[in-house]
């Protein structure tokens, strides 16, 4: 049911973990729906220098978390803020229809982390 890209990101997720002194943290989802995604950012000069994630969720949730970190790294905050859930799913060559709601989390978590950074630094 999952594409090869999804399986790759799921079985070898990139950027798993926490950033010790992250300057932006975002969390979305909740345990009752079975998905929790947490994104840690290291922003320097308006650019995402490092990003890591921790996820409680299904295969799609883990793969989209991994993919969103790959897409975000090196981007300016403005570029990262226009990254859509749709774009994450496409970068994974698509998700099964039943799993589209998982991809709705990954970009959201990234945006939450950026907003957290902006709130702290404005």
């Amino acid at each position: 049911m999952y594409t090869e890209k999804v399986m790759d990101h799921f079985s070898n997720p990139r950027n798993v973990g926490e950033i010790e002194n992250a300057n932006g943290v975002g969390e979305v989802g909740n345990a009752s729906c079975g998905d929790i995604m947490k994104i840690f950012l290291k922003v320097e000069d308006n650019i995402i220098k490092d990003v890591k994630f921790k996820t409680f969720g299904c295969g799609a949730a883990i793969a989209t978390s991994s993919m969103v970190t790959e897409l975000a790294i090196g981007k300016t905050l403005e570029e990262a803020l226009v990254l859509t859930n749709q774009a994450v799913a496409e970068a994974l060559d698509g998700l099964p229809p039943a799993k589209m709601h998982c991809s709705n989390l990954a970009a959201d978590a990234l945006h939450e982390a950026i907003k957290d950074y902006q709130a702290k630094n404005s």
């Binding site: 399986m7 799921f10 079985s11 998905d35 409680f56 969720g57 299904c58 295969g59 949730a61 883990i62």
Partner: peptide
């Protein structure tokens, strides 16, 4: 505890 079931199944599956 702490792990969602499907992701566990997919790792088992591997």
């Amino acid at each position: 505890n702490f792990i969602e079931g499907e992701s566990l199944l997919l790792f088992f599956d591997m």
